[in-house]
């Protein structure tokens, strides 16, 4: 394992300290417990947005704290949900009197720890609503299972709900917008290489030189299926199939197309993927009206990518376009 780290135990703390040093104009960082809040938190009268989860997915979530997006992010250990206490502390820190929305990726650990934090907040008289992001179509959904995972679609939920909060929507309305995005975004991913968790020091799976994993999550876990390496276009087609069937997306739809790098993929490859995905959508009569290409929800140094498609309407488009000023996503200010 070769990494730019010091003691693996200090990876998250040192990175958060670096993040604070680099983005002092946008965020403040609290340590013990560790969380990141926007520089002007709490914003009086505005619904606060809190997200979080294991570290190793950067820029998710800390990179999305700032005006027009999250009020706070709570980083856990690498690939491990944070405990309830920092989530609770972050919830208190961003409560501007209009309640707080928890945006949680659907993993048992995240769900349970945010649940406890919400209970603690409620006990302090803070109104909390929770939305669970579950955009990964690689996982078959069912009432009897843990359901689908939350992956790169989370970024779109955070941006759009953040814009709704920024324009003054109340907690119920912000939660409703978030739920609408969750209902309309679908994602699927592929890994070319595994990743190595610093304290583990070993990849959690191994792939031969001609193998790839289809339907991976974002924690270095194996995917649904291991196949032979294919040309980029064939891989894109393989991912887009289940995505488009799921809602389904149909001719006439306007969509946002997100091609998300897993951390170790060169940008030049992400654009090769984008090209094909846009081509396939166009052929189906689906119009790509908004786009995002880059590393947004990563798995450390994993090579691979995910494709997300979000069905847009005027409201979501307007909220997407609204100004945002975070370390990793910025426009309009």
């Amino acid at each position: 394992m070769k990494k730019l780290v010091n003691d693996p135990k200090n990876v998250v703390d040192e990175a958060v300290a670096g993040f604070a040093a680099a983005h002092g104009d946008i965020v403040r960082v609290s340590s013990d417990p560790t969380f990141i809040v926007r520089a002007d938190a709490p914003v009086s009268g505005k619904v606060g947005l809190v997200s979080g989860g294991g570290s190793g997915h950067e820029p998710l979530h800390g990179g999305f704290v700032g005006v027009g997006m999250l009020d706070a992010a709570v980083p856990g250990a690498v690939f491990t949900s944070p405990t309830p206490d920092p989530i609770f502390a972050a919830t208190q820190a961003v409560n501007g009197g209009a309640g707080v929305l928890h945006i949680v990726k659907n993993y048992t650990g995240d769900v349970l720890n945010f649940e406890t934090a919400a209970d603690l907040a409620l006990a302090e008289g803070i109104e909390v609503r929770t939305v669970i992001v579950n955009d990964d179509v690689a996982v078959k959904d069912s009432l009897y299972t843990a359901g689908r995972r939350g992956v790169a679609g989370t970024v779109l939920v955070e941006k759009i709900a953040g814009a709704a909060a920024e324009r003054g929507d109340d907690l119920a309305a912000v939660a409703a917008v978030a739920e609408k995005v969750i209902g309309q975004v679908r994602t699927m991913g592929v890994a070319l290489t595994p990743c190595v968790v610093p304290h583990a020091g070993e990849p959690s799976f191994t792939l031969a030189e001609d193998e790839i994993e289809i339907g991976i999550g974002i924690h270095g876990e194996p995917g649904r299926e291991r196949i032979q390496l294919e040309p980029a276009d064939a891989i894109v087609d393989r991912l887009l199939g289940p995505i488009l069937e799921d809602i389904p997306f149909v001719s006439g739809d306007s969509v946002l197309l997100l091609v998300n790098g897993m951390g170790g993929t060169p940008q030049i490859e992400l654009y090769i993927v984008f090209r094909r995905a846009a081509e396939v959508l166009a052929a189906k009569g689906i119009t790509v009206t908004r786009t995002l290409v880059g590393n947004f929800t990563t798995s450390l140094e994993m090579q691979g990518m995910s494709i997300s498609v979000l069905k847009l309407d005027d409201e979501l488009t307007e909220l997407w376009d609204a100004p945002v000023q975070t370390a990793a996503l910025r426009w309009g200010r």
């Binding site: 294991g54 309830p84 650990g109 720890n113």
Partner: peptide, 12 residues
């Protein structure tokens, strides 16, 4: 356990 583990096993 709740405040030191995180993940699924901490709360459970």
């Amino acid at each position: 356990l709740v405040t030191s583990v995180g993940g699924a096993s901490g709360p459970l």
